[in-house]
Simulated scan of single mutants.
Amino acid sequence: MQGREPSLNALLTNAVIFHNALDIAEIVHQLLEEGWEIDPEDLAHIPPYLTEHINRFGEYSTHEFGIQPDAYDPKLDVDFTPLREQDLAAAGPGQAA
């Protein structure tokens, strides 16, 4: 069993990152619907591995396991082209980004 611990840690880390990415995307969707303008440069500085909200030894409810989530729309209406162009310019000529 000891050999499985690193893979379980990686699985847990990936689950936290995925959950955080969904939460961040939901907030961005809400802000866009409210009329906020989202700067892609600001989004580029939000790390998906946030752990402050995790209570490892707290009390947890499992009734949510039976709840069917709504369909998820992964599209964000944010133009990331300026960031891509900035990365290409920083890479220099003849280098892949």
Rank of each mutant, 00 (worst) to 15 (best):
Q2I: 15
Q2M: 15
G3Q: 14
R4P: 06
R4D: 06
E5R: 14
N9M: 15
N9K: 13
A10I: 14
A10W: 09
A10Y: 13
L12V: 10
L12R: 09
T13L: 06
T13V: 05
T13E: 07
T13F: 12
A15G: 06
V16A: 03
I17P: 04
I17Q: 04
F18Q: 15
H19L: 13
H19Y: 11
A21Y: 05
D23V: 08
E26T: 13
I27C: 11
I27K: 13
H29R: 10
Q30E: 13
L31N: 08
L31V: 13
L31G: 07
L32N: 08
E34L: 10
E34I: 00
G35L: 04
G35T: 01
W36E: 15
I38S: 04
I38K: 08
D39E: 02
D39L: 12
D39M: 02
D39C: 03
P40N: 02
P40Y: 00
P40G: 05
D42R: 08
L43S: 01
L43M: 03
A44G: 02
H45K: 14
H45E: 09
P47Q: 09
P47L: 06
P47I: 03
P47D: 04
L50R: 13
L50A: 10
L50Q: 07
L50Y: 14
E52F: 14
H53Y: 04
I54N: 01
I54W: 10
N55V: 05
N55E: 07
F57Q: 07
G58N: 00
E59T: 11
E59I: 12
Y60M: 11
Y60T: 00
S61I: 04
S61E: 02
S61T: 04
T62V: 11
F65E: 06
F65I: 09
G66W: 07
G66E: 05
I67M: 07
I67C: 11
P69E: 00
D70H: 15
D70R: 15
Y72P: 00
D73M: 07
D73P: 04
P74L: 01
K75A: 12
D79L: 13
D79N: 14
D79C: 03
D79H: 12
F80I: 13
F80V: 09
T81Q: 09
P82T: 00
R84M: 14
R84E: 05
R84T: 05
E85M: 15
D87Y: 15
D87S: 15
A90C: 01
A90G: 03
A90K: 12
P93L: 10
P93N: 07
G94L: 13
G94K: 10
G94H: 10
A96K: 08
A97H: 06
A97E: 05
